[in-house]
C-alpha cells in the first residue's frame, strides 16, 4: 500500500500553471527523487503535496498525519538553543525525545549552543533533525543538502536510508546523489503546456475558451 500518491496532479505558481499530469506513488521503504531544471516547479509540487496550497487539478492522497515537510527555510529560531528548537517541534508533533535526533544528526556537541551561532551547514543539520522528531513516516524534502559538506551529506544519506528501512518513505527534490536506492521522477516531461496546445488553464482563463 502506498503512503503517498499523486494522481493527474497540476500545480500553479502565482496563478500560472507550471506542471500538469504528475502522477506517482510512494510505498513504504521507498524514496522518490524529483529532478528537473530550476523553475520547473519542484518547490511548488512539494508545497502542494504538503498541503500548503491546493492543486489546480487532480489530487494528492496521503495517509492521515503521515507527511512531514522540510522547506528551503529551516524555521530555526536564532535565539533558541539547538535543543530548545528541537524540543519545540517534538512537543508540537507530540513525540517524546529529542536526544536521539540530536545524536543521529551529530549535533551533540552543539546541543546547548544558540542556533544563531551555528554555521549554515550546522543549521541545516538542525533543520533536518526536525524531521526525525516529527515521528512521521513520509518525509517531503526540498533541497535538503544545500550548504551541507560531504561528510554531512553522507550522514544525511544514512539517516534517510535508516528511515526507509524502518518503513518510512521520502520524497526529495535534489540534484545530489544521496547514495539511495531511489526512483527518479524527471519533472521535465510534466511541464505545463500552453493553453492553446490543450494544456490546463487557470479558472479565470477557462471562461475565455
Amino acid at each position: 500500500m502506498s503512503l503517498l500518491s499523486a494522481h493527474d496532479l497540476a500545480v500553479a505558481r502565482a496563478g500560472v500553471p507550471v506542471l500538469e499530469g504528475v502522477g506517482f506513488a510512494l510505498a513504504a521503504g521507498r524514496a522518490l527523487v524529483l529532478r528537473g531544471p530550476n523553475g520547473i516547479g519542484k518547490t511548488t509540487l512539494l508545497r502542494t503535496v504538503a498541503g500548503l496550497q491546493p492543486p489546480l487539478h487532480g489530487r494528492v492522497q496521503a495517509a492521515p498525519d503521515a507527511v512531514a515537510y522540510a522547506a528551503h527555510a529551516d524555521g530555526v529560531k536564532g535565539t533558541l538553543s539547538v535543543t530548545e528548537n528541537l524540543a519545540f517541534w517534538a512537543s508540537v508533533f507530540g513525540t517524546a525525545s529529542v536526544a536521539a535526533a540530536i545524536d543521529r544528526m551529530n549535533l551533540r556537541d552543539l546541543a546547548d549552543r544558540r542556533a544563531a551561532n551555528l554555521s549554515a551547514g550546522q543549521k541545516r543539520r538542525l533543520g533536518l533533525a526536525r524531521l526525525l522528531v516529527t515521528g512521521r513516516p513520509v518525509w517531503v524534502m526540498d533541497e535538503p543538502t544545500v550548504s551541507l559538506d560531504t561528510a554531512s551529506v553522507q550522514l544525511f544519506g544514512d539517516v534517510v536510508r535508516d528511515h526507509l528501512a524502518a518503513g518510512g518513505a521520502a520524497l526529495i527534490a535534489t540534484h545530489i546523489d544521496l547514495g539511495l536506492d531511489a526512483d527518479v521522477l524527471d519533472l521535465g516531461r510534466f511541464r505545463a503546456r500552453p493553453a492553446a496546445a490543450g494544456g490546463i488553464r487557470s479558472a479565470f482563463d477557462e471562461a475565455f475558451t
Partner: peptide, 13 residues
C-alpha cells in the same frame, strides 16, 4: 485580468 493572463501565456510560450 485577461490581459495579464494573455501576457503570461505569451511569456511562457
Amino acid at each position: 485580468r485577461r490581459l495579464q493572463a494573455l501576457l503570461t501565456r505569451e511569456r511562457l510560450a
